[in-house]
């Protein structure tokens, strides 16, 4: 038996909105640690890793480890029916073939339950080693979203370069080219507005903007984003989910043939 009660139900709504474009079907894994997911996009170029820790739920009951295959578009459709202030409870029976989402309005005067069919998904789990990154850039998530959107109107790929000078986002296309440099600025009024660059070694990597733009759907989850880069490794774009965990996107770089 599984019963997970999330007071801030809007978080789950935002999580689904952030990943449903990238991944169609995925297994949600439930254990004593929390509610998690790891899934690749259909071309195996990008991966999303979600963790919502058990401590972040008001009530968390998971009698045995469970893996529930869901179509993320259908799940998003159901969660869209929850109000932004609603409490969301996820319920499932061991060995059952459905999951129930229960929505309670804050004043408890409206209670809805939506039952969704589960599906069998052959998922390929990747082992992601802990890595020391050459550079980690933390910046406002809205700024990162703006940069990806702006550059994608010029080109298809972005070169992200980190040096002592700052982090540079560059693109080239048929109509011309663009460079956006963000310097470290830790002297801003609010910490979430700061750009912080932690660099051990200069790094420069090329990525498809289409995926980066898809990752920025997670912007409503967090005021800041952290971008971890190492030469010759996939980038990690992480949005922390307050008090609960994270959504991490991994993207394989474009490399010389």
């Amino acid at each position: 038996m599984l019963e997970l009660r999330l007071v801030q139900g809007s978080l789950l709504k935002k999580v689904l909105e952030s990943i449903k474009e990238l991944v169609t079907d995925a297994n949600f894994d439930c254990s004593s640690t929390g509610f998690s997911l790891q899934a690749m996009d259909s071309s195996h170029v990008a991966l999303v890793a979600l963790l919502l820790r058990s401590e972040g739920f008001e009530h968390y009951r998971c009698d045995r480890n469970m893996s529930m295959g869901m179509n993320l578009n259908n799940m998003a459709k159901m969660l869209k029916c929850a109000g932004n202030d609603d409490i969301i409870t996820i319920k499932a029976d061991d060995g059952g073939d459905t999951v129930t989402f229960m929505f309670e309005s804050p004043t408890q005067d409206k209670i809805s339950d939506f039952e969704m069919k589960l599906m069998d998904i052959d998922s390929e789990h990747l082992g992601i080693p802990e890595a020391e990154y050459h550079a980690i850039v933390k910046m406002p998530s809205s700024e990162f979203a703006r940069i990806c959107r702006d550059l994608s109107s010029i080109g298809d790929t972005v070169v992200i370069s980190v040096t002592k000078e700052g982090v540079k986002f560059s693109t080239k296309g048929d109509i011309g080219s663009a460079n956006i440099v963000c310097r470290q600025n830790t002297s801003v009024d609010k910490p979430e507005e700061a750009t912080v660059i932690d660099m051990n070694e200069p790094v420069s990597l090329t990525f498809a903007l289409r995926y980066m733009n898809s990752f920025t759907k997670a912007t409503p989850l967090s005021n800041t984003v952290s971008i971890s880069l190492s030469n010759e490794l996939p980038v990690v774009v992480e949005y922390k989910i307050a008090e609960m965990g994270y959504v991490r996107f991994y993207l394989a770089p474009k490399i010389e043939e």
């Binding site: 170029v45 390929e124 789990h125 990747l126 082992g127 790929t157 394989a252 490399i255 043939e257």
Partner: peptide, 14 residues
């Protein structure tokens, strides 16, 4: 020209 790499080139399948 650069080619899009796949995640399997970096991470192992479990």
């Amino acid at each position: 020209a650069k080619k899009q790499s796949k995640l399997s080139a970096f991470f192992t399948m479990r």
